[in-house]
């Protein structure tokens, strides 16, 4: 007896392996669901809510929703596109996102999602928060203005680098990224250029100095291919793709 089970995504069958969440199975099957804080190498986080789908009538984040046989998942509906559109607008309004002067422009997932979802304006009043940059480190710049609080660097630094260079403090709209030093400066942390945490920022917060414009604007990742295509390329393929069991998810 085959152990391949399936659920329905916008009416089409998607196979999944036990323990996979909806987004893991969908991406493995070559089906794109817009997402931001989800990263195929890390445990699903469920904070940005961009991957919100409707499953058996109820809305849920596809990245943390366990796949179940027969589940009817809707993703490409007008309602959900509108919700995702608004969420991306909110992120643009919350931070200081000035793409023309950002060296991650073209490689930025938030920007690419904006293109994908047709976000022409943040729409809301911009918060223009005051978030000073940290240029203390000789080789790394932290520009908190662009932080979307996805915690990927926090997760990578703790889980892969075993350093916990990054953490979050504050709460609500005052939530913000901090570094592991009494001085509050990156230069006084254990961060190293080889750290995983430096590779995972989906936006332009964590930057290596002096290399930002090696590839000219206009020839970068999402300039060439839309995120819908690139996300599928970087997703693990096949229904056997490893998916962390959400039941074993460790909070710390």
């Amino acid at each position: 007896m085959s152990d391949t089970q399936t659920f329905l995504l916008d009416g089409e069958e998607v196979p999944f392996a036990p323990g996979q969440t909806v987004i893991q199975a969908a991406l493995a099957a070559g089906r794109y669901i817009p997402h931001l804080c989800y990263h195929p190498e890390f445990k699903p986080h469920g904070s940005c809510k961009v991957c919100t789908v409707r499953a058996d009538g109820r809305t849920a984040a596809a990245c943390t929703l366990p796949a179940q046989a027969g589940l009817a998942v809707e993703s490409e509906t007008e309602e959900l596109k509108e919700l995702r559109h608004t969420l991306v607008q909110m992120l643009f309004a919350e931070g200081n996102h000035f793409c023309p002067s950002c060296e991650q422009s073209g490689n930025c997932m938030l920007q690419a999602l904006g293109y994908e979802l047709g976000v022409m304006t943040a729409g809301f009043r911009h918060f223009f928060p005051i978030r000073p940059v940290d240029a203390s480190h000789p080789d790394i710049l932290l520009d908190f203005n662009r932080c979307i609080l996805c915690e990927l660097c926090v997760r990578a630094s703790c889980e892969v680098d075993d350093k916990c260079v990054f953490a979050l403090s504050g709460r609500g709209i005052g939530k913000h990224l901090i570094v592991n030093a009494e001085s509050g400066r990156l230069a006084d942390t254990e961060v190293a250029l080889s750290d995983k945490s430096l590779q995972v920022c989906p936006v332009g917060v964590i930057l290596r100095k002096r290399v930002g414009f090696a590839v000219p604007i206009g020839q970068r990742k999402y300039d060439l291919r839309p995120i819908r295509a690139t996300a599928l390329e970087s997703a693990p393929r096949g229904p056997q793709a490893p998916g962390p069991c959400p039941s074993c998810e460790e909070g710390s």
Binding site: G46, S47, C48, K49, V50, L87, M90, L91, A93, E94, F124, R125, F127, I148, L149, G170, R171, G172, I173, G174, K175
Partner: peptide, 21 residues
């Protein structure tokens, strides 16, 4: 609600602040 939002998810973190505004 804006004061007590934990700030984990985008809609509540930003949305409650916008509603209060």
């Amino acid at each position: 609600f804006a004061h007590e939002s934990c700030g984990f998810c985008t809609p509540c973190r930003v949305g409650t602040a916008m509603l209060a505004d």
